[in-house]
Design a protein around this nucleic acid. Structure first.
Length: 316
DNA sequence: AAGCTGCTCAACCGCATGGAC
DNA sequence: CGTCCATGCGGTTGAGCAGCT
């Protein structure tokens, strides 16, 4: 007999979240900060279990989350990190700012795994043909030596690629392009050259099935919602300014503390500490990444050996 | 137009982990 | 040291959707 489900209690709601629930949750977190999830349902009156609240926040509502449209760079990073770390999605997510572990996991399972499988079955066929056509004079040890040399060069390329990817990710700080900055609801009549006004979803527009997709980040709604609901005496710009302070830019927020301690990271954001400096986070350093790569190389990690950068390049 | 099939992804479930007592 | 509890993590599920027949 395992532990009973945490959501066994009667009256706990399951299934898709509504905008109202999201607003309640974001509003609560804005005031109290993430963490202490146990108390969230009782404090907010949400008919959700604490786990569900935490998941909703970390996978969807948390500021700085980028959704969909994985870039090639990200694809490659995921492929390499998966080969290196296995299915440790939280660890992989720590190297990919703005992506959640759940998102990466889904993307891997639905896209990359399939692509990789297709590629490998193709290359297996090619190898089979090459082996059949190749002269039998070359010894297997010779082949291994050559392959090892080639692999070392590939490894260096991989490290350079990882460095480039990370530096590009870090440089996003100055050029944010994340989707969360797109307003989830904009006035149809808003001039294009104006900052679109944030609007709450029109009454009756809610469609449970499309809500999660159409609303990039409910957090963007909150300042306006607070103003409209009279819960905040701040002006719109003030509240947005405050809000932006509390929800800093995606990339400065994006790196998790060692990939498994988002609470400590996000809590600090909400407790009025100085605006996070990217250097303050315990970002897994490149030297660490390199070390892992070399360690794996020394141990002959087959997963990683199987998938070099050049191979992953040819996937795209 | 209706039914079927496969895909996507938000959300759930259960186990693992670590801290408090 | 053992137990309890809160939280984190990874695997899995299922509703909704798109494309095909």
């Amino acid at each position: 007999m395992g532990r009973p489900p945490c959501c066994d209690s009667i009256g706990v709601k399951k299934g898709p979240w509504t905008p109202e629930e999201d607003i309640i949750l974001v509003s609560y977190i804005q005031q109290h900060g993430p963490g202490n999830w146990r108390s969230v349902p009782t404090s907010t009156g949400l008919l959700r279990c604490s786990k569900s609240c935490r998941l909703r926040w970390t996978n969807y509502l948390r500021p700085g989350i980028k959704r969909g449209n994985f870039t090639e760079q990200e694809d490659k990073m995921i492929i390499h990190l998966q080969a290196l770390l296995g299915n440790r999605w939280a660890a992989i997510a720590s190297y990919l700012p703005q992506r959640t572990d759940n998102d990466i996991k889904n993307y891997w399972n639905t896209h990359l795994k399939k692509r990789l499988h297709n590629y490998r079955s193709n290359s297996d066929q090619e190898n089979h043909h090459h082996q059949q056509g190749a002269s039998t004079s070359s010894s297997s040890s010779e082949t291994i030596t050559i392959a090892k040399g080639q692999w070392e060069r590939k490894l260096q390329t991989d490290i350079n690629m990882a460095k480039q990817a990370l530096s590009e990710a870090l440089s996003l700080d100055t050029k944010p392009t994340t989707s969360w900055q797109q307003p989830p609801y904009t006035s149809p009549t808003a001039p294009i050259d104006h900052q679109p006004e944030l609007l709450p979803p029109p009454p009756g527009i809610f469609n449970p099935s499309s809500y999660a997709l159409s609303s990039e980040n409910i957090a963007r709604l909150l300042p306006n919602w607070l103003k409209n609901s009279g819960k905040s005496s701040q002006t719109s710009s003030e509240s947005i300014g405050t809000f932006n302070q509390q929800f800093p830019s995606p990339t400065s927020e994006g790196f998790k503390n060692n990939g498994n301690s988002e609470v400590s990271e996000t809590t600090s954001l909400f407790q009025g500490e100085s605006k996070p400096n990217i250097g303050e986070y315990q970002i897994p350093s490149l030297s660490f990444l390199e070390k892992c790569l070399f360690d794996d190389a020394a141990q002959g990690d087959e997963g990683f050996m199987d998938m070099s950068l050049e191979e992953s390049d040819s996937l795209f």
